[in-house]
Design a protein around this nucleic acid. Structure first.
Lengths: 95, 95
DNA sequence: TTTCTATTTTAGTAATTAGTTTAATGTAGT
DNA sequence: ACTACATTAAACTAATTACTAAAATAGAAA
């Protein structure tokens, strides 16, 4: 694997490797959620969720659309969905 | 996904998300290498490689065997190999 | 034993990352 | 206009992580 890919991938993994951000990605895997929705599930402050969402946006993992005064977030990159699926299969004991 | 799995996985991703450690994992995917071998490929100090290897060992990703005064490292967890394979397929343009 | 080589550990510092608080922005409804 | 709500931005402290250099450990060979 080339250095360029190593760097790209390590940045991606880093952005996913915070428990709050990983949880957000899980939540957004099959639904669109507002910042407030996420805050309720993750139990932290709005500002903190916002900061984490921003990191995921800058990484190109999620994007958002605005509706009234809500911002709905969703996973955009299908590779992330695929990667999450693989991780779940490998690390979550299948029922 | 349960909180426990989220924590486990985020720790795993964190340990993989440093470029040097990710490169080490790539190198060890299909071969056993000594600390010095790795240092030559990664271009840093022995101590630095040793520290990164230690992080990967504590995470249970790799283990090592001693032969004379060399320590040979290898990936032990087959899930890591599988995960690396998926990441490579998704993020390295296939020839 | 001494010497050399490979690796690890420790200690120190620099750099990055995380979380809290507060202020600011934007939008809908009254 | 004002008020309420949702979100973001800025500033700061605390905590973690990374790298370097030097000392320590362990084994092989002389």
């Amino acid at each position: 694997m080339e250095t360029e890919h190593i760097d790209t991938l390590s940045k991606l993994l880093k952005s996913m490797s915070h428990p709050i951000r990983l949880k957000i990605l899980c939540l957004l895997r099959d639904q669109e959620l507002s910042v407030g929705d996420i805050r309720n599930q993750v139990k932290t402050t709005n500002a903190n969720v916002s900061q984490h969402l921003n990191i995921l946006r800058n990484q190109g993992i999620i994007d958002c659309r605005k509706d009234a005064n809500f911002i709905y977030n969703r996973v955009t990159d299908p590779r992330i969905t695929e990667l999450m699926k693989t991780m779940q299969e490998l690390y979550c004991p299948h029922k």
